[in-house]
Structures are given as C-alpha cells and as structure tokens.
Design a binder for these strands. Structure first.
Lengths: 325, 325
DNA sequence: CTGTTAGCGCGTTCAC
DNA sequence: GTGAACGCGCTAACAG
C-alpha cells in the first residue's frame, strides 16, 4: 500500500503542502479551521509522518545504540530493561549491537553508529579493549557516549559503575567475619578493570588479616568457573569461603561446590542482581547490584549529554550497592 | 564536526556529485582511474554515506523490529543472540521493543514499526493478545511479520515454534517411565497457546495411564511458580514427579522443592535451553529448546519474506527438539 | 564516461 | 493566513 504523504493531503484539501506541514505541526499562524480540516483528512487518509524524511531534515534519528560484549542471561537483560524503559519513554529507539568480545567488532559498531547518525551510544567494553581511541570517531561526530560496567581507566567519557573495590571488600569482609581462613575469589576476565578492581577490593580486605590464605581465580564464563573451582577444591581441602564477583561465576562455582559436596560447608557470597539468589541452594548473602538501575542511570546521563550538545563534562558515577544478608 | 558529503568530494575532485555517487557505488560506467581518485579523496575527507538519505531514497531502512512481551533472563537472551547474528550479518539493524505484556503497548509498537518503515517485524505475543488484527497494519504497509514462541492459533503470519505438545508429552512420558504416580505440570500464563499446547501434550501422555494423579499449575513468573508449588507440595504429600514447561517455572519450582526438602525425592523434568541444567541440583533430564536456533530460523524466514516482497505464503515451522538424559 | 536534472518527504524561509 | 521555492544527501533517468 502506498503511504500517504503531506502532498496527498494537500491535494485532498486543496491547499499547498507547506500549509499541511504547518497545520500538522500546530504552527501558530495557520487558522484553527484549517488545522481542524487538515487533521481530519490526515486521519481519514491514515497519514503517518515519514520519520526518515524528518530525520534527514533534522539530522537527528532519535535512535540510541547499545553496544554489548555479549548477550548473556546474567545482568544483561536487566541492563536492557533499564535502558529501554527510559529510551522509549523519551520517544527514542534502541538498537542493540553485540561485539562478541571482539575489539574489531566493537570498532565496526562504533563506526556504524556514527554512519547511521545515532544520537547517542551506550557501551560496555570487550575484554580486549585497551584504550578508547576508537570511540573518538563518535566524538568527532558529536555523538555522546556513556560507558557502563565493563570499562577501563579513563577520563574522557562518562562512566557508570558501582564501587567495585568496595563491594568486593564488603563481601570478603563478610567471609572474614564468618571466620573463614582460606578464601577463594572468583572473578571474570583478567583484562577487565571490573575484575581488577574487585580483586583489589578483595586483597585490601585481606590486608588487615595476613593469616588468611587466599586464591584468585579468573574465569571467562560459567563453565570455566565451574572447572577451575572444581579443580581447586580437589587440591585445596581447607577452603572455607568463596567470594564470587558475579552471578555468572557464582553459578559455575555453585555447580563445582555441588559436585564436591561442599555447598553447605563452604560459605559463599557474591555480587549479584539477587534474582536467582532466592533459588540458590543454600541461599547466600550478597551485594545487590541492580542492573536495571544502572541502565536507567546510564541512559539518563546519555540524554543529559544529548541535550547539552557536547557542552557537558563527563561524569564518573559509582552507584550505591547494598549488602543483603 | 560537519560530516563530509558527496558534494564536498565533488568539489574537491572537481566533478559532479553524481559521478562521485557512481564511483563510490562501483557503477560499471565510470573509469577506473576516476573511481580510484574518488575513493582516495573520500578516504581523506573521512566520508561516510548518510544512511538516512539513502533510506529516504530507497524507501527501506535496513532495520528489523523485535517486539518482546518482556526481557527476562530466560530464553530471551538466546533469542536475541540468534536474531542479531543473522540480522547483523545481512547488514541490518535490530530495534528491540518491549510490550510489558500489555496488548496496547504491543499495538503501539506495531504502529511505530510501520511509521518508521521497519523492513520486517519479529514478534512474540503478550498474554493478552487474543487476535492478530493489529498486525494487519503492518501487512497494509507490506511489512512482513514472523511470530515465534508465544503465539495464538492463526494461519496468516509465518510462525516458528517447537512442537509444544510433543515436547511436553515426552517429558511427562519420561516421568511415567520413571514410575511416577502423582505428577504436577507447571506452565506459564494460561492465556498463551504455548501453555495450552504443552498442557495438552501432558494430558495426552496421561491418557494412556488413567491411574496417574495429576495437577496443572499455571504460573506467571518464577516467584509465582515457587509459591504455588510450595503450597501444593504441602497439601499433596504423594507428589513424585514434576514437569516444568520452561526454565523460568523450573527455577521457581526447584526453589519450592528445596524449601520442602524434596529436591532429591521428586523426579523433575523440564523444557529448557540447557544452560543452567548443569548447575541445577540435582541435574535433570530435559527437552532442549534452543532459543538461539529459533532466533536464527525466525530471522531467516523474515528475510526470505522480505526478499519475496510479500509474494510468499506464510510458513508454520515446528523446530525439532531433543530429549537429553 | 560524465554532467544535468529531478525527486524521495518534509520543514522553513521568503514572499504575497 | 497561505503559496512558492529551496534544501537536507543521495540516486537514477536522461543527455551528451
């Protein structure tokens, strides 16, 4: 079916297209009667404005790009929910791109975002990303960027994280308070600042307690965590506490604990969105890391930068987290 | 920074804009030397084509809309992965919309997809959707639609599901074979054909075995499943088998089983993507329902319809599933 | 092989 | 208050 355009309405009403345009946009100097008539005819003809044409004129697309390293069950759905809620509320659309943890793909997606004139970009970095040079392209095009969760140390782009070191520290302190003497920390990919920071938080907490044995395990995914922890439990019989930096490694570690029949004997704690904690056996104490909230904050920050048209300085937010016992 | 356009290159090279356009698009009748030169200058000036303008001309947007009832951890991430992989491979973009299980929102999103000239739509229906009249709008605009997973009986739009009844039947048969005499089936929202079909599959399997007690439980989410099963286990002491129609209700049911200390005594089976099964305690036999594959198939079907420009008849695919023990 | 012209659908600056 | 004309950036038809 052919879409009806402003022109069609113009012919139907018997006036000039520009009048239709003005009437439809409630321009002040078009007569109320004309507006009324135009709107009626538009309704009858099922007129819908051609967004592409509007975009071409306005040089905006009302579209936000979200670049994720991978779309896993953990954390990501919450993030997407948080972002879409504010993006849609503002009448924008969200395009999701996956970098598959490949730097090249990340670069390509940045390019594509620029080429398609996204109005803003929200990104969580790959394991491989060592610097943010490729993001400069977006800056050249005046496209604001907000980085969240997985990031690297930098001061150029707004960043939303939690206080990773503090959260990890709290968890480990909990284990210490529970009298654990041999603690394992399970982290994600070693390249990520998020793993690094949380590992440091763990080590800081241990600094005051020199007599506590500990291991740091870096796992790339759920299965990797399971395998490594399983191995470790076999060789280290005295382990009595485990701190997991995410739901993903927690799930893997739990499976290993189950296999070794130590689910109930080894105290576990984690940074988690809490959704699956009620179903974990046994339940554990954890730092609640709310992905949806993080998504909302990231999106809101992006919109303030969009509205300020690049005149705003980057902000570096660390969201509050809560220890739930 | 001002974006460089075809015009800028034209001035730089000293030829007409249309020549630039042809050169850039490798049009046959432009000289190789010219092509070379144009491409060099384009490179130097950091030229990137304005997709919005291209879209306006071509009346295509190279964008696919994905409408989901909700973005949960279960199943959805796999679906998104499957779809994005083929969509991106084809040079298209994916816009994700959430209906929050509200029919009105679903309608709005359909409208928005039409207004923004999406080239195709992939949709999983809300609990409330009773007919597909609102999808007709897309048909009017010649936008192909593929429905997957959550659907209702209809013959107008291509549909990708699994053989729900068969899968459920296999699971329940497994319980019967294990000598269960009192079986609970846990399903999703009762309005959905997917719940209905799987429940029927269960009842069919029970038909041959009249002496088996059974209950059907319809749960709206993980927590709801937990609460209902918990209650049921308290009043029905003889329950010895549970069939869960999804990972979501399985997670809830498992929590209830744990609370009632019956994780090991009641045989459980489920339709599942299998990702969390290795971490479920104890592990269970299940029908593997591969969300990623379903996403890939749905997207591919959509593209064949896009390429056939509405001249193709709808197809109704039921993907193969495998019982894993 | 390359230049000219026109138009995609819309909004906006001029005129009248 | 409304019409005419132009341009956003690109492509395609028509010339030459």
């Amino acid at each position: 079916m052919k879409r009806t355009t402003i022109k069609d309405i113009a012919i139907a009403v018997g006036v000039n297209p520009s009048t239709i345009s003005r009437a439809l946009n409630d321009h002040p100097d078009v007569s109320p009667e004309m507006k009324e008539k135009v709107k009626q005819v538009a309704e009858i003809l099922h007129y819908v404005p051609n967004l592409t044409a509007v975009n071409l004129k306005s040089k905006k697309t009302k579209t936000i790009g979200l670049i994720l390293p991978v779309i896993s069950k953990f954390f990501i759905p919450n993030i997407i929910n948080g972002i879409t809620s504010v993006v849609n509320k503002r009448g924008y659309r969200l395009v999701i791109l996956t970098s598959d943890d490949h730097l090249e793909k990340e670069m390509e997606h940045i390019k594509m975002c620029c080429h398609t004139q996204m109005d803003g970009i929200i990104i969580s970095l790959t394991n491989q990303t060592k610097n943010l040079d490729h993001l400069k392209l977006a800056t050249d095009f005046d496209i604001p960027i907000v980085v969240f969760d997985k990031t690297i140390p930098q001061r150029k782009f707004s960043t939303i994280t939690i206080d990773d070191a503090k959260a990890a520290g709290q968890c480990v302190q909990y284990l210490i308070d529970k009298n654990c003497k041999h603690i394992v920390g399970v982290f994600g990919n070693k390249n990520l600042a998020i793993s690094e920071n949380r590992a440091e938080g763990m080590l800081d907490a241990l600094l005051q307690n020199k007599n506590i044995l500990h291991h740091l395990v870096y796992a790339n995914n759920m299965l990797d965590a399971k395998i490594q922890i399983d191995e470790l439990l076999k060789t280290q019989a005295t382990i009595d506490g485990i701190f997991c930096m995410s739901d993903e490694v927690l799930t893997g570690a739990s499976a290993a604990l189950y296999a070794q029949e130590k689910l109930f004997s080894i105290i576990t704690t984690s940074i988690s969105d809490g959704e699956l904690i009620g179903f974990r056996i046994p339940e554990i104490a954890y730092i609640k890391h709310d992905g949806e909230k993080m998504g909302v904050v990231a999106a809101n920050q992006l919109f303030t930068e969009i509205e300020n048209e690049g005149k705003s300085d980057p902000v570096f937010l660390q969201l509050e987290t809560e220890f739930i016992d």
